[in-house]
Design a protein around this nucleic acid. Structure first.
Lengths: 344, 344
DNA sequence: ACGATAGGGGAAACCGGTTTCTCCGTCAAG
DNA sequence: CTTGACGGAGAAACCGGTTTCCCCTATCGT
């Protein structure tokens, strides 16, 4: 089966190649009658534009890129990515853009990837999901002239980098929801087992929780980890071993919360009577454990959709876009069995 | 920053464009000295080949495609995909191939997607993961001359389609592991809540389990579902309502197993004393539930790696490849609390 | 020393689109 | 009636590689 090209379409419609191109792309310079004729010919021949040829002649590559930074040891994908991925794909399904996902194992590799993507003209834009403190990626991408949209778990006053379009979910809302819940139950000493302090979100949350704590006269101890179950367990043990241990512990993800729960149970504590536990992100795991874990439900898929929508807009507008920050729907606290009134 | 092209490299090395191309691609026709000079120039200029131009001139597109068929209502991604995805990405990370993933909502859409990919020359090959009975996709892909590799949960004698390279995991091993476990515990009536009967795997498993049942004098009832928690629960209720209900129920996935567990507990049955439950696929959910669910652990990520490796080989060999079926590592039964000796 | 041969490397065509430039015909204004 | 403006459409250049074809030169054999 011979591949049908635009030349075939043009011949079938009785026009030149150039005219056919204009007709098919909705550019002016062809009459309506010709336009219709060309479209009919294209449909009849079942023509689709060759992506490579199109990208080569300076038009769009028809794809967006998403780099996933993972440590070489644990290349497993977290539920955050999975959820966001489904939102991204859902939004892209209604466009003719492809999604290219690539796993990288270091920041250096990631930057190289962007350079390659730019040189190869393989993607039209890039999605950035885990923003680091002093993240070099936005600047590199801007220099490469690769459009980007960052997903930024932020606050009204925070910006990932100057001039970068971003989508943000208000962390204050989430932090306060969890802390208000603890406070209402009578808890006054809270432990917070956070993620990577090199990332913006954990640092920001620590700042937000500290501010809230000062306001409410609550003592909050934050411990940063690498999100692994091991470090989560170690952090939990460390908190429990203190002179005046917290009565309420927040874990930044479901996996740590689950191992934290095991640690508490093995230490002979009963949950939530002796100690209350909560996870910052909800997942089926939180619902399935015993006792079920109180957690924050983040509409991550929706956030992924918004981010994708935003990237598509940036690509269509060609970058001369007015607003930079778009807020996405916030979070909902899902109280479960693992949190209750402070014991004595 | 001006984009550096192969012409720049050629000029810097003092050779022609064509010679530079040959040098960089390891084709013969250039001396070693020139080859080295060109490579040095390319490195110095930080040149990467423009993917579009390369694809256009008949070479590879540098990408492989993976279509995900999901029902419009539940676009959520299952753990199977997630695990396989991480294996695929892990394997691709060491190549310069990109992965393009696209969500589709119907078989028709999926076939259209393949036609588009072929016409656009966007991908060099395709991965097929959920093989259906009388699946039309292999034939379509072969007609489009798109190389493919199918992941096929099969048996030694089964083949997804003639002439199609595939990677297979032996279902007999899995089915027998689970049934032997049940048999050893004294169970003689087994319920099996399967997935979609339009897919090859559930049908094959039913056949395998029936054969095993005939051999061992065990009664097995299979119910097909759409993998949703609702249908899983309904199927479990149906089995429990029988005159002589099964004493051991297998669920095809973790989500159904979990809701099935709830159904049993709510019916006042104790697990595993009154009824034993197992999941055909393991997941953190199975380990976290109470009681923890006995499950089969499939090395899905490894299987994804093998499938990807195979596709890369097919692409490199240009299709004239001898062997078609590659077996991937099998499964391991993980006994947990949800299964025990048959009660009375 | 001369002819045959092999291989390095340059010129140009080609992949399939997009875009620019130019020509031509038509219609409106002077 | 002449001239100018405008819009439709063709020709050709271009994007950045790969590949074919051919020439030229160095080497080998006799």
């Amino acid at each position: 089966m011979a591949r049908t090209t635009i030349t075939d379409v043009a011949r079938a419609a009785g026009v030149s190649k150039g005219a056919a191109s204009k007709a098919l792309n909705g550019h002016k310079g062809v009459s309506d009658a010709t336009r219709v004729r060309v479209h009919e010919a294209a449909a009849a021949l079942g023509w689709s534009p060759n992506a490579a040829a199109r990208a080569l002649s300076g038009a769009r590559a028809g794809a967006v890129g998403w780099a996933l930074l993972r440590s070489p040891k644990s290349a497993s994908v977290d539920p955050f990515f999975v959820e966001m991925f489904s939102g991204v794909e859902l939004e892209l399904a209604s466009t003719d853009l492809s999604l290219i996902v690539k796993l990288v194992f270091s920041h250096e590799q990631e930057l190289d990837l962007y350079r390659r993507w730019a040189a190869e003209r393989r993607v039209d834009g890039v999605m950035l999901t885990d923003i680091y403190v002093d993240d070099p990626r936005p600047a590199v991408l801007q220099e490469l002239e690769l459009p980007l949209v960052a997903f930024f778990p932020g606050a009204p006053t925070e910006v990932p980098a100057p001039g970068v379009p971003f989508v943000w979910a208000d962390q204050a809302l989430s932090v306060h929801a969890l802390l208000d819940h603890a406070y209402a139950l009578g808890h006054r000493r809270v432990g917070w087992i956070e993620g990577d302090p090199a990332k913006v979100a954990p640092v920001l949350r620590k700042r937000l929780s500290a501010a809230w704590a000062a306001e409410h006269g609550v003592e909050i101890t934050t411990i940063f980890t690498d999100h692994s179950p091991e470090q989560g367990a170690a952090a939990a043990l460390e908190l429990l071993a203190r002179d005046r241990p917290p009565t309420f512990i927040v874990f930044d993800n479901d996996v740590m919360a689950l191992t934290g729960l095991s640690v508490c149970l093995e230490a002979g504590l009963s949950v939530p009577e002796d100690i209350a536990l909560a996870s910052f992100v909800d997942s089926p795991l939180c619902a399935a454990s015993t006792p079920a874990l109180t957690a924050l439900h983040h509409p991550i898929a929706d956030q992924g959709r918004v981010m994708t929508r935003r990237l598509v807009e940036v690509l269509e507008s060609g970058g001369d876009d007015d607003e930079l920050g778009t807020e996405v729907p916030g979070t909902v606290l899902v109280p479960r069995r693992s949190t209750g009134p402070v014991g004595r």
